[in-house]
Simulated assay, not measured.
Amino acid sequence: GYFERMLRKYRFKNFFSFLEETEVSLTVSSHVPDAYSIAKDDRGQRVSKVLAVLGANASGKTNVLKPVVFVHWFVSHSFQLQPDAPIPLQPHAEAMDQPSEFETEFCLDDEVWRYRVVLTTKRVLEESLHRKTSSQFSYVFVRKWSQASKGYEFKQKKDFGLKAAEVIDARQNASVLSIAAQYGVDIATKLGHFEIASNIDFAGRMVNDSNYIGRLGAYYHKNPDHRKHMEALLRRWDLGFHGVEFEEVIPNPEKPEEKAIMMYGVHKGRTGPFRLGFRQESSGTVALFSLLAKLLPVLRKGGMAIIDELESDLHPLMLEPVLDLFFNERTNPHNAQLLFTCHAAEVLKHLHKCQVLLVEKNAHCESEAWRLDSVKGVRVDDNLYAKYLAGAYSAVPEFH
């Protein structure tokens, strides 16, 4: 087999609290023993299905995930910006006048790709896509801003085939890939379909508004397969939970054509089943419903879930069954990946040291990140949980 779609690594510089170049890698060396949480293809490439990000409050944990969300948006949707709109980019506070840089390396349909972009809020300065052929990368397209001509130098390989290349000068705030997808370029369309589900955007964690439960209900109502999977998991995880029922209602009698879906949790009582409106359910049950609405589509099709505060409103013992959804071939047939931040150090009991990224902010308000297996003296048989809590790896809150 091969990797249908997996993120291998990414680098970024001058973005939110990260000033210096930072690399986050999900590739796994041959020294790490085989495990269900590590995907392996026929060529011996090994990529982790999970990466946990740990660190103190305000260390930059969420910011280390934002580059993936930003690049995915930029590649897929930046064409939707008005041509003169600023690019929604947040450089580090001390380098606001400097460009930000991003590079991602990923597998898609048995090929390895590398995408790079350097930009300011005003325009793209450099952008390129490379494809790995044999042992090296060769360009698919390269775009560079020329200050002298106030336009782009652009070269592309034949198989990219963007016939309307002149539109690139007019769209300085959009990626070549999002432009090319509008013109039916196959490679651009294919790369735009790399599935990412997240509870953050590049501004931060999304806040659930008052219509959130209604949207959840509509999602499960429209996706009966996901609903069945969700119900089976919650029956296994949640004592007394029996299933979900839906009811179509008309909130405003003056507009009978506008219908809404009401969702009820069905529970087993002493005298038989009873229903609870979803706003009456526990925060833990609602958190699981919400989380599964993000995870199940990615598990079914492949791609990536990026979740800030995975354990939010969940019992610490729920972390293991949620991770198991990604570790199990039956529930994760396409090697979907999970990147998440977490405060619950218990997660270290379920992961190899190569699957943990530690984040810390220095005295100059600059975040730094490093993989736990890069820390000298961390042994495979170490109790990572106990040592992390004891402060052996840094990245824990200090109380004075």
Rank of each mutant, 00 (worst) to 15 (best):
G1L: 06
E4W: 14
M6N: 08
L7S: 04
R8Y: 12
K9G: 03
Y10K: 03
Y10I: 02
F15I: 00
E20R: 14
E21Q: 12
T22Q: 14
E23H: 10
V24Y: 13
V28P: 03
H31G: 01
H31D: 12
D34W: 05
A35G: 09
Y36I: 00
I38E: 06
A39K: 04
D41L: 01
D42N: 10
R43N: 12
G44V: 03
R46A: 06
L51T: 03
A52F: 08
K61E: 08
V64K: 02
P67C: 02
V68T: 10
W73M: 02
H77K: 12
Q90E: 11
P91D: 04
A93V: 07
A93N: 06
D97C: 00
Q98H: 12
S100Y: 08
E101C: 02
E105Q: 13
W113P: 02
Y115D: 04
Y115G: 02
R116C: 04
R116D: 00
V118W: 07
L119F: 13
L119I: 02
T120S: 15
K122I: 02
E126S: 08
S134C: 01
S135I: 00
F141L: 01
K157M: 07
G161A: 13
L162H: 10
A165Q: 11
D169V: 00
S178W: 09
I179R: 09
A181L: 02
V185C: 03
V185E: 02
I187E: 07
I187V: 13
L191C: 01
L191Y: 05
F194D: 01
E195C: 01
S210K: 08
Y212I: 00
G214Q: 10
Y220K: 01
H221N: 11
H221S: 05
N223D: 08
R227K: 14
H229I: 09
L233R: 10
R235Q: 15
W237N: 03
L239W: 12
H242W: 03
H242Q: 11
F246N: 00
A260S: 14
I261L: 08
H267S: 02
P273D: 09
P273R: 11
P273E: 12
R275C: 03
L276Y: 15
T285L: 13
V286K: 15
F289C: 14
K294I: 08
V298K: 03
L299T: 08
L299D: 08
D308F: 14
P316V: 12
P316C: 09
L319S: 07
L319V: 09
P321R: 11
L339V: 06
T341H: 10
A345M: 05
L348S: 03
K349W: 01
K353D: 09
K353A: 09
C354N: 14
E360R: 07
K361A: 04
A363I: 09
H364I: 02
E366W: 10
S367G: 15
V375S: 04
K376R: 15
K376A: 13
V380H: 11
L384Q: 08
L384I: 05
G391P: 12
A392H: 15
A392E: 15
V396N: 04
V396C: 06
V396E: 06
V396A: 07
